[in-house]
Amino acid sequence: MPGHLGQKVLNALTGGHSNHPPGQNLPGRGLINEDERPLSSPPNRGTYPRLARLSDGSILSSFTQFPENQRALCVARSTDNGRTFELLSEVTRAAGDVDNMFLLEAAPGVVLAAFRNHDIGPDGPSHFRITVCRSMDSGRTWKFASQAAEKKPPFGIWEPFMRLGRRGEVQLTYSQEFAHNNQCTMLIVSQDQGSTWTQPTCLHGNNDPLRDGMNGIAKTIDNGREALVMAFETTRYGPFNIEALISYDDGATWQKRHEVFRPKHGHNAGSPQIASFADGSLVVAFMTDEDSSQVEWVKHAAIKVVFAGPPHNGQIQWSAPSVVSPASSFWPGVMALDHHTALVTYDRGGPLAKTVTWQPR
């Protein structure tokens, strides 16, 4: 939905709220710390890094490597709050298209790994899957648990994200194409730690000509009311930009769609992930090529973050962006480390991370 029509629809949804100009009266400020560290030791090549905190205090990192004409989904572990990581295990490897791995501890010591797992034929993907594997020993060994979602071509499924709902159920969201210009965020739920799943439901925009994708969700609070904020990429202006939705019912329904970040005209901002701090303030990490004279997405992208205070009556005011990692960097993730610090992950010749700090006023 490019051009002026897209902006009119967005203004109608949000009351004109936009990231331009960015908010100047945030209840704090975000700082980028120059403390880059690898997410594995030795610092192997790898991409699509993500993090998961376990109940024993350790942190698992996950990333995709490319050994011997295959893809391997790898896990490393930190016992010093994310300062150093040691390679721990391999979830799976395959000659097909395995990637987009996301980890979640479903119960103490029970870790799920969800990832895309597509068969590739001579004309491209021949079968699409979101596969879930399970570890009963905090990520050391893995077994197949279920095919959480699967379908035949022509349209695909990608980019799983997982969180625990209020009742301990696993909520898995992923992106599903319905047409070349229509992709939606889907929800499936498991009550048995990933063995079985509900039928998928579309969370928002099933009839919109927009490619919503690569979602992440963080818990926050809106004037004392529990809330979730979902960040995702979309195609409102042709290239990718970042938008968000808010849920007040633990992720069942979503509303208050609004703009988080829009790059310079003709450029892209995509692949967002979101985390929250102790006071409910938010940080969104994403990749953007807006500083490059060349637009060849996803090349020439830098990793940036924007910050916001908690929602206020469904309104969120986002900061101007700050650079975390220069071009070319890819596929960021983010996870809160403590009350005021988050660890932003990315691929720049291998899986790396850097902390950002939120300073409330």
Score class of each variant (00 low, 15 high):
Leu5Ala: 14
Leu5Phe: 14
Gln7Gly: 05
Asn11Val: 06
Ala12Asn: 08
Ala12Val: 00
Gly15Lys: 09
Gly16Lys: 03
His17Phe: 13
Gly23Met: 08
Pro27Thr: 02
Gly30Pro: 11
Asn33Thr: 12
Arg37Phe: 09
Pro38Val: 02
Leu39Ser: 03
Ser40Leu: 12
Ser40Tyr: 03
Asn44Gly: 01
Thr47Pro: 02
Tyr48Ala: 09
Arg50Ala: 11
Leu51Ala: 09
Leu51Ile: 01
Ala52His: 02
Arg53Phe: 13
Gly57Asn: 11
Ile59Arg: 06
Ser61Asp: 12
Ser62Met: 13
Glu68Val: 09
Arg71Pro: 08
Arg71Ala: 06
Ala72Cys: 06
Leu73Phe: 02
Cys74Gly: 00
Cys74Val: 14
Ala76Phe: 05
Thr79Gly: 12
Asp80Trp: 10
Asn81Thr: 08
Asn81Lys: 06
Gly82Ile: 00
Thr84Ser: 14
Glu90Gln: 05
Leu104Ile: 12
Glu105His: 01
Ala107Met: 07
Gly109Tyr: 07
Val111Cys: 04
Asn117Pro: 08
Asn117Val: 04
Gly121Ser: 09
Ser126Leu: 09
Phe128Cys: 05
Ile130Ala: 01
Thr131Ile: 00
Asp137Glu: 13
Lys143Trp: 01
Ala145Gln: 09
Ala148Thr: 07
Pro153Thr: 03
Gly156Asn: 07
Glu159Cys: 05
Pro160Thr: 03
Val170Lys: 00
Thr173Tyr: 15
Glu177Asp: 05
Asn182Ser: 07
Gln183Phe: 03
Gln183Ala: 13
Thr185Gln: 13
Ser195Trp: 07
Trp197Arg: 02
Pro200Thr: 08
Pro200Arg: 02
His204Tyr: 15
Asn207Lys: 12
Leu210Gln: 15
Leu210Tyr: 07
Gly213Cys: 12
Ile221Phe: 15
Leu228Phe: 13
Met230Ile: 02
Met230Trp: 10
Arg236Lys: 08
Gly238His: 03
Asn241His: 15
Leu245Arg: 10
Ile246Lys: 00
Tyr248Lys: 03
Asp250Tyr: 04
Val260Pro: 08
Phe261Pro: 02
Lys264Leu: 06
Lys264Met: 11
His267Pro: 09
Ala269Ile: 09
Ala269Lys: 07
Gly270Gln: 08
Ile274Leu: 03
Ala278Trp: 15
Ala278Asp: 15
Ala278Tyr: 15
Asp279Ala: 02
Gly280Leu: 11
Gly280Thr: 04
Gly280Cys: 11
Val284Leu: 00
Phe286Pro: 01
Met287Phe: 14
Thr288Leu: 05
Asp291Trp: 10
Asp291Pro: 06
Trp297Ile: 03
Ala302Ser: 14
Ala302Cys: 14
Lys304Phe: 09
Val306Ser: 06
Phe307Tyr: 15
Phe307His: 10
Ala308Ser: 13
Gly309His: 01
Gly314Asn: 04
Gly314Glu: 05
Gln315Ile: 12
Gln317Arg: 13
Pro321Phe: 05
Pro321Asp: 07
Ser322Glu: 13
Ser325Lys: 06
Ser325Val: 02
Pro326Glu: 13
Ala327Glu: 14
Ala327Phe: 00
Ser328Pro: 12
Ser328Gly: 14
Pro332Gly: 05
Val334Ala: 05
Ala336Gln: 14
Asp338Glu: 06
His339Pro: 02
His340Gln: 11
Leu343Trp: 00
Leu343Phe: 04
Thr345Leu: 07
Thr345Tyr: 01
Thr345Trp: 10
Tyr346Asn: 01
Arg348Glu: 07
Ala353Thr: 01
Lys354Met: 12
Pro360Thr: 04
